[in-house]
Every structure is written in structure tokens, then in C-alpha cells.
Amino acid sequence: MHSLFLYVGLYLCFLMVLSLYRGVAGPTVVDRLIGVNAIGSKTVVLLVLIGLLYDRIDMFVDIALAYAMLNFIAVLGASRYFQKRKGLYEEPPYK
């Protein structure tokens, strides 16, 4: 069973690289927010899986909970910051 969790964790890392592409190449800055939010939520699940692999599940559950909260606050802060038009368009705004 442990190898199953290892391969699932590796597959999650591969999915993270996919959403990292959206984070890097996202045309607008709010697209990058989507990529970062997706990576953050995958990290929470990955942390619990790693806890399972190391057989110290209760320690890693707390870390995963703290990371989930941190990810939530970071996304809220970033979205509140990017409301103005600053840095949203490379070309002139859509009209």
C-alpha cells in the first residue's frame, strides 16, 4: 500500500507542474492566481500523503491544515491587491 501512496504523490507533483505552467504563462495576472491556488490545494493533499509515507500522520496533518489556511489567506490578499488595472494588461485594455 505504501508504494501506492508514493506513486499517487509523484502523480500529484506532475499535476503541479501542469498548473505551474498556468502560473508562469498565464496571460493575465489573475490567471497566475488560479495556477498558484491550484498548486496550493494540491500541496495540502501531498502533505497528508507524505505524512502517511513517513508514518507520522498526526504531525503532517497539522502542517497540512496550517498550509491550507496560509494558502487561503495568500489568495485572498493577492486577489484584493490585483483589483486595480495595474499589471493586468500587457496591451491596452479591452474596450
Binding site: 492566481l33 490545494s41 491550507a68 494558502n71 485572498l76 486577489s79 488595472r85
Partner: peptide
């Protein structure tokens, strides 16, 4: 917690996009 926070975060991102005038 994820069930409560994820929709709120998605809504906040969408709100940022709408306020910034993304069509």
C-alpha cells in the same frame, strides 16, 4: 476547511478579475 475556503478564494479571484475590467 477546504470546502469553506476554496469557493471563497475562487470568488475573490473572480471578483478581482471583474473589478479589473476583464471582459
Amino acid at each position: 476547511f477546504v470546502f469553506i475556503s476554496s469557493p471563497t478564494a475562487t470568488h475573490a479571484i473572480m471578483d478581482a478579475g471583474v473589478r479589473a475590467g476583464l471582459r
